[in-house]
Design a protein around this nucleic acid. Structure first.
Lengths: 234, 234
DNA sequence: ACCTGAACACCGTTCAAGT
DNA sequence: ACCTGAACACCGTTCAAGT
């Protein structure tokens, strides 16, 4: 922040044009995300922020989707490490909740995370943490591997669901449709109408995660190399 | 298609301007979706298709998200009824697979379905079918109600994951990252690297659905009215 | 190699004015 | 009430030309 008079600067009006690098682009993207949401994290807006034209960004970032993935990985760095004590199930649930809560602050980012596979360092660290906890719980490695995918997908999709433009407008429509259902044509919906709509978001997330963990523990993954002699009972 | 000379028509060049109704808009949307994908199902394009200006569509459709939801419900009408024989688990899996396969043909539609809650008649019919199958399997109603949400979310998210613009580009990045992982820093990832990436999409979907169903069956939903005297063991 | 101005080909939505 | 032209305020991405 200190002004260094010996630094040559061609323009005096702006607070020093930042060097154009991948990091400076992602940094600007995170700043805009925080201040105005993902909708404003566009190539054009970032170019403006970095005092250049949109075309320049394409030297460092393949496209908008890749940029959003980089932003997500950056935010992922901010969820703390896994809690150290307590039963593994609870710790697993807490890590995934923290991930979901972070995404809930930026649901549109969750939406893009479902489509573009993140592969940054913080995402890999999260996967490592989840695998370690499942391993600690004695979950068979193959199930754990596929399970991580299922758990992250659930967490991400749960956050993404909240990325509506007009919040609770189509949710209202569904609620009305379920409440006013014709019991003759849809007896099962009518019977559980209240339950379909009940529950705090936090309760439903927690229930979903626990159901998933149980299912992962107890559902055998198909053999990768179908070889009768090496088949172990599961 | 027959030309009826007695029908008054102000313009002779176009094949008769269709009446502007919600149905004609959704119909045009489905046609464009089939021919060119959801990316082209825009207000402007539809207006052009219906020989009017984009502003006219807003009389019948609140916004683009609502339009996409209507399109999804329309397509939902085309997946046949639930299979009649076989164990309930298998039939449940088959209904959800059919839903997923339909969405896989239009992954971007799956993406929007995660955000905008559909509430059309065909979607309600699907929910009814799922509840009926879970009921047949003896799954407690409250678990079935929350479970339907989980199952549909999984099916939708699985399809949405395939909605990449540049297919298998970031997936390649993740695969490289996992294969080249540093075993010292990420021992668990290194140990199951192959499993993380293994499996046919169909196998993983099937495994995921079975894990979910099991978890739903066996995970108790929290009491809605916490009342000690009415608490039943689960 | 890196950077960019300008262009191409689009968007969603609103609003005042018409019928 | 229904419909619309025109405008407002944007997009992502490419490419030829510059340094």
């Amino acid at each position: 922040m200190t002004d260094r008079p010996d630094t040559p600067r061609s323009r005096r009006e702006r607070p020093a044009k930042p060097a154009l690098t991948r990091d400076s682009i992602v940094g600007a993207a995170v700043a805009v995300l925080r201040a105005e949401g993902l909708a404003k994290v566009t190539m054009r807006r970032l170019a403006q922020e970095l005092d250049t034209g949109p075309a320049s960004l394409y030297v460092y970032v393949r496209n908008t989707a890749e940029l959003h993935a980089a932003v997500l990985d950056e935010l992922l760095g901010e969820i703390g490490p896994a809690p150290a004590d307590g039963p593994w199930r609870e710790r697993l649930e807490r890590v995934l909740s923290a991930y979901t809560v972070m995404l809930l602050a930026h649901p549109t980012l969750a939406r893009s995370a479902l489509t573009t596979w993140p592969s940054g360092p913080h995402y890999l660290r999260l996967i490592e943490t989840l695998l370690a906890l499942l391993d600690e719980g004695g979950v068979a490695p193959a199930r754990a591997a596929w399970g991580v995918d299922l758990l992250l997908q659930h967490a991400t999709a749960t956050a993404a669901e909240h990325a509506t433009q007009a919040p609770s407008e189509d949710w209202d429509a569904l609620r009305r449709a379920v409440r006013d259902i014709d019991a003759d044509h849809h007896p099962h919906i009518a019977a559980v109408a209240e339950e379909l709509l009940s529950g705090e978001p936090g309760q439903r997330l927690s229930w979903g995660l626990r159901a998933l963990i149980l299912g992962i523990e107890r559902t055998a993954v198909p053999d990768r190399h179908p070889n009768p002699s090496s088949r172990r009972p599961s």
